[in-house]
Amino acid sequence: MKVGLYFGTFNPIHAGHLIIANHMAEYSDLDQVWLVVTPHNPHKKKSTLLDDHHRLQMVFLATENYTKLKPSDIEFRLPQPNYTVHTLAHLQEKFPTYEFSLIMGEDNLNSLHKWKNYEVIIQNHDIYVYPRLNSGETDPELMTHARIKHINAPILELSSTFIRDSIKEGKNVRPLLPGNVWEYVEHNLFYTK
């Protein structure tokens, strides 16, 4: 089974995340996409990041009607701070018959060379890349690397920061969130302060 890992804080998960994840599941050779909720780094100021379990619950709610999309809390149980290379090694050990790949925007591909042991990642895992506006210059060697799979997904410029700021300002962002996620956010009064 080929599984794409889509990492994020998902604070909150929004329509853009779902569109990208579903596009990868439907229009690539991936069998499933796991939305991996990144835990709160205990060494960083909390700021607007909701507790891990609330963000995981929102991802669960958002994906419950998609058979190929799965929420994942795998990083919650790994030592912090955690690195993608460690998560991949842990998953490969736990699911030896699965083939894990990364899903990222072009903007993240541009900074891949700064990741811990990125050479190990790119040597052992495919990376599915979706387009972003203003993603900057990508290393030509990375653009043509055999492990990099460019997927012509919709270009979406929607951010969780924009949604949080809009909620704080009293704006109606209901169309930007899956319905049950909107209800969860509204019920819990998230991002209002």
Rank of each mutant, 00 (worst) to 15 (best):
E106C: 00
D126A: 12
E186D: 15
I167Q: 01
I148W: 01
L61N: 07
V120S: 10
F7K: 07
K168T: 10
R174P: 00
L61P: 05
T67K: 15
H125G: 05
M143C: 11
T161P: 06
T9M: 14
L78A: 07
L18K: 11
D107H: 05
A62H: 07
Y6E: 04
L158S: 09
Y27P: 00
H86P: 03
H14W: 07
V85W: 01
H125Y: 12
E106Q: 13
V37C: 08
G170V: 10
T87S: 15
V37E: 04
N188D: 07
E64Q: 15
N22V: 06
A146E: 13
I167A: 03
Y118Q: 08
K68I: 04
P131T: 05
K2M: 08
P178S: 13
W34G: 09
L176C: 13
D29M: 07
I151Q: 04
L49K: 05
K149V: 11
G4M: 05
I151V: 15
V33D: 02
E137G: 11
N124V: 03
T38R: 02
I122K: 09
T48M: 09
S166E: 09
L91V: 09
S159I: 08
L142M: 06
H17P: 14
H53G: 07
P154Q: 10
I122C: 14
Y184V: 06
A146I: 14
M58K: 08
L61I: 11
Y27F: 14
H43K: 13
A153N: 04
P96N: 06
K149S: 00
K2Y: 03
P154R: 14
N180G: 06
H90P: 01
N180R: 14
F100N: 02
L102S: 02
D73N: 15
G170K: 12
I163W: 02
D51L: 08
I121P: 03
L30N: 00
S166F: 00
T84K: 02
G4P: 06
N22W: 06
L35E: 02
T97E: 11
D51E: 14
G16P: 09
T9E: 00
T63R: 12
L189C: 10
L78F: 04
L61C: 02
T192W: 01
S101Q: 00
Y130L: 03
P42Y: 03
Y191C: 02
Y83V: 08
E106Y: 01
G16Y: 01
K116D: 05
Y98R: 04
N124K: 15
L189Y: 09
F95H: 12
E64V: 10
S160G: 15
E186M: 09
L49P: 02
N134H: 13
K45D: 03
G179H: 11
K116M: 04
T48G: 12
I20C: 10
T97M: 04
F76R: 05
K114V: 04
Y27D: 07
F76A: 05
Q92F: 03
T87W: 02
T67Q: 13
D139S: 12
S111F: 00
